[in-house]
């Protein structure tokens, strides 16, 4: 039988033991203005639009289309274009330099109604859809003008590895 963590992972939830692998190096992350990308794409699938959409080459070219994305964090500018392009909505940007000491800004993909607007207080959801925080929407962008929005929301720093979606309440 599967243990609980396997069960969670097998149903689409990135468990803590697997999170390490996708995190940027902390020293760089803490300093990088505008944030760095976190990509939660643990399965080899034939897909590379994240690389195609990256204007700086931070998401490196794929040797094989099924490769898991590799990131040159030095080049990442936190622009969020991959956030809006990834078909799996697996890219997120986390800006640790934003706001007060304990705050961070998360740039999350969003394709549901109602659309959040800047200034809204929204429910912040973890990977299981549980509301773990109420955060303030700072900005909403639509980088590719294709209806996929990137919602910029302020969150407590210690929540950056928990929050993965927002919901208008």
């Amino acid at each position: 039988m599967m243990n609980d963590n396997e069960k969670l992972f097998n149903s689409g939830i990135l468990t803590e033991e697997k999170q390490e692998a996708v995190l940027p190096p902390m020293d760089l992350w803490e300093k990088k203005k505008n944030g760095l990308v976190v990509i939660e794409c643990p399965q080899q699938i034939p897909c590379n639009p994240c690389h195609d959409s990256c204007p700086t080459g931070a998401i490196m070219a794929f040797e094989n289309i099924i490769d898991i994305p590799r990131i040159d964090y030095e080049k990442c500018t936190g622009c969020g274009r991959c956030v809006a392009r990834c078909p799996g909505l697996a890219c997120f940007v986390v800006d640790l330099t934003w706001g007060e000491e304990n705050e961070a800004l998360m740039k999350l993909p969003h394709e549901m109604l109602p659309l959040p607007r800047a200034g809204d207080e929204v429910a912040c959801l973890n990977r299981m859809g549980e509301e773990v925080h109420r955060g303030k929407v700072i900005n909403v962008t639509e980088p590719w003008k294709d209806c996929t929005r990137v919602v910029h929301v302020s969150v407590p720093k210690d929540m950056i590895m928990k929050i993965r979606a927002v919901k208008v309440v």
Binding site: S11, L14, E40, Q43, A90, G129, R164, A165
Partner: peptide
């Protein structure tokens, strides 16, 4: 897996 993650985080 990413398709599943997308809907799991919506509850």
């Amino acid at each position: 897996w990413v398709h599943a993650a997308k809907i799991r985080r919506l509850g």
